[in-house]
Computed example of a mutant assay.
Amino acid sequence: MGSDKDHILESLIAEGRKRDAMHLLCEMVGEAARQRDFVRADALRKKMLQVDDMAIALIVEAGECIEEEKNRVIDGRHRENWKELYSRMTPGERSAFFFACDPLPFSSGYFLFRQGEKNQNLFFVDDGCLQLLFLSGERREKILSRVGPGEFAGEDTFFGSSLCTESLVGLTQGLCRRLSLEALGRLERDFPGFIKRIQTYCIHAGTTGQKLAARGVNRRIYVRIPDNGVVVFQLLCIEGSGNNVLLKGLMSDISAGGLSFHVSTSNDRAVRSLLGREIGMKFMVPLQEGRHPVVCKGTVVGIMPCQNCEYSVHVKFRQLLRHHPVVPESH
Rank of each mutant, 00 (worst) to 15 (best):
S3R: 03
D4A: 13
D6M: 11
H7E: 14
L9T: 06
S11P: 00
L12C: 10
K18I: 09
L25W: 08
V29F: 14
A33V: 13
D37P: 00
V39Y: 15
D42Q: 04
L49M: 12
V60S: 13
E61W: 07
R72T: 10
E80L: 07
E84P: 00
C101G: 00
P105E: 09
S107R: 06
Y110I: 04
R114K: 13
N119Q: 11
Q120P: 00
L122A: 05
D126N: 11
G128T: 06
Q131R: 11
L132D: 01
L133T: 11
R139W: 15
I143M: 12
I143P: 00
G150P: 00
E151I: 05
D156F: 05
T165D: 09
L181S: 12
R186C: 10
L187P: 01
R189E: 14
F194V: 02
H204F: 09
T208E: 12
R215G: 10
G216F: 06
N218M: 06
Y222I: 06
P226H: 12
N228D: 12
N228K: 14
G229I: 04
V230A: 12
V245K: 03
G249M: 08
I254H: 10
S255R: 07
A256R: 14
G258E: 01
F261G: 02
D268E: 13
D268N: 07
R277S: 15
M281C: 14
K282F: 09
R291V: 10
I303T: 03
M304F: 15
C306H: 12
Q307D: 15
S312D: 14
V313F: 12
H314V: 09
V315T: 08
F317E: 04
